[in-house]
Nucleic acid binder design. Structure first.
Lengths: 209, 209
DNA sequence: GTCTATATTCGGATAGAC
DNA sequence: GTCTATCCGAATATAGAC
C-alpha cells in the first residue's frame, strides 16, 4: 500500500488538467496560424508546451481529436466574443451589430475561421459534443434574425449567406482588415428593406414556414 | 550521331504531352474528391495514370506545382462553364443568371470550390500565370455587374460577398444540391433594388470611384 | 502523467540507367 | 520520358518503464 492513494477526480486535479489542456489548445492555435491548420505537427505542439510528443496522447487520443477540441474551443471563443457585447433594444440595429461582429471575429483569425466555417481538414468532422457548442451560436443568430423580422427558412438562408459572404470576402481579400466589416450595416439594411417589401406585398398570404 | 535527333517542340509531341497532362489533372481531381484536397499523394496519382511516382516529376516539379496546375484548370473549367451559357440582353437578368450559375458551379464540386475560392493548402499560392486565368473570370463578373448598374468599389464588394456567401452556404449545408442556387434570383433582385434606392437619393453626388 | 524507445507507414524528392 | 532504386525526413501512434 503506497501513500499516494487513488484520488477522486473531482479536485484540483481536474482543475490542473483543464488548465494544461487550455494551454495546449492555445499553443495549437499559434502553431496553426504559423504553419497552416492542416500542417500542425504533434511534435511541434509538444515542444511548444514543454512535453514529449507521446505525452500529448494523455490529452487527445488522436490528431483529429485535437482538431475537435479546437473546433469546440473556437466556437466558445465566438460565444464569449458575442456575449461580451451589448446589443441595441432595436432588433434591427442589434442584428446589424451582430453581423459586423461576426465578420470582425472571422477577420481577427483566418485560421480559426477556416476550422469553424470551412470543411478543410480531410477526415475531420466535429463530434456531437463539439457541434452542440456550434449550435448554441447558431441559435443566437437565428433568434436575433427572427426578432428583426425573419420568418421563413428561405429568408434565414439568405441571411446566413450574407453573413458568411461578408466574412469570406473579408478573409480572402483583406485578412485582418475591415473592408467588408464596414459594409455589414449597409448589407443588413438592404436585407431588412427587402424583407419589408416582401412582407408588405404578400401579407399573410405566402407565409410558408 | 544517332537517328533520333532532337525534335523541335512544336509538333504533335507537345500535343501528346498536353493530352497526358490533362489526363493527370483529371485523375488528380478524382483523387482529391476521394481523399480530400490536401491528402492527395503523388504515389496514388501515379498509380491512377499508369506511371511510376518519380515520372510525375516530368510534368510537375513539385506537389505545389500540381496544385497550381489544378488551380488554373479549375478556373478554365469555370470560364468554359460560363461561356457555354447564353445570357439575357437585359443586364439585370443576365447578372442574376450569372450568380445562379456560379453558385451551381461551386455546388457541383466542393473540392474544386475549395481550391479556387478558399486558401486551404498550407504553402500554396497560385503562380502569376495561373492567377491570370482567375482574373479573366473576375473581369467577366465585374463587367456584368457594372452593366447592371454597379458603380463603386463598395457596391462591387457587396456583390462579390453575395455570390461567395450563396456559394459557401450551398456547399457547407447542401453540397450537390440547389437550396441556395434557387435563392440567387431573389438575392440579386434585392441587391439591384438597393442600388436603385441609393442611386436615386444620391444622384451624381457621392459617386466616388 | 510523463518519459524513452520504437514501430510503422508514408510522404516528397533525387540519381542515374535505359 | 519512363524506369528502378533509394534517400531522407516526417508523421502519427504504441509499448512499457518510472
Amino acid at each position: 500500500m503506497t501513500t499516494t492513494s487513488v484520488q477522486p477526480p473531482t479536485d484540483r486535479r481536474l482543475e490542473r488538467r483543464e488548465a494544461k489542456l487550455a494551454n495546449i489548445l492555445a499553443e495549437a492555435w499559434t502553431l496553426a496560424r504559423r504553419d497552416g491548420l492542416a500542417a500542425i505537427s504533434l511534435r511541434d505542439l509538444a515542444d511548444a508546451v514543454g512535453l514529449r510528443q507521446p505525452s500529448l496522447y494523455v490529452y487527445f487520443e488522436s490528431k483529429l481529436d485535437l482538431y475537435d477540441a479546437m473546433f469546440a474551443d473556437g466556437y466558445r471563443q465566438l460565444l464569449a466574443y458575442i456575449n461580451a457585447r451589448r446589443y441595441s433594444d432595436d432588433p434591427r440595429r442589434a442584428l446589424a451589430k451582430l453581423v459586423a461582429d461576426c465578420v470582425q471575429f472571422s477577420s481577427n483569425d483566418v485560421i480559426r475561421h477556416q476550422l469553424l466555417f470551412q470543411r478543410t481538414i480531410p477526415g475531420f468532422e466535429p463530434s456531437a459534443a463539439s457541434f452542440d457548442v456550434a449550435l448554441d451560436f447558431y441559435a443566437i443568430g437565428r433568434g436575433m434574425a427572427e426578432a428583426a423580422g425573419v420568418r421563413t427558412q428561405a429568408e434565414l438562408d439568405i441571411f446566413t449567406a450574407l453573413v458568411s459572404g461578408l466574412a469570406h470576402q473579408q478573409i480572402a481579400n483583406d485578412p485582418g482588415g475591415r473592408r467588408w466589416v464596414r459594409l455589414a450595416d449597409q448589407v443588413v439594411d438592404m436585407f431588412l428593406a427587402d424583407l419589408d417589401r416582401r412582407h408588405k406585398t404578400t401579407t399573410s398570404t405566402g407565409g410558408r414556414r
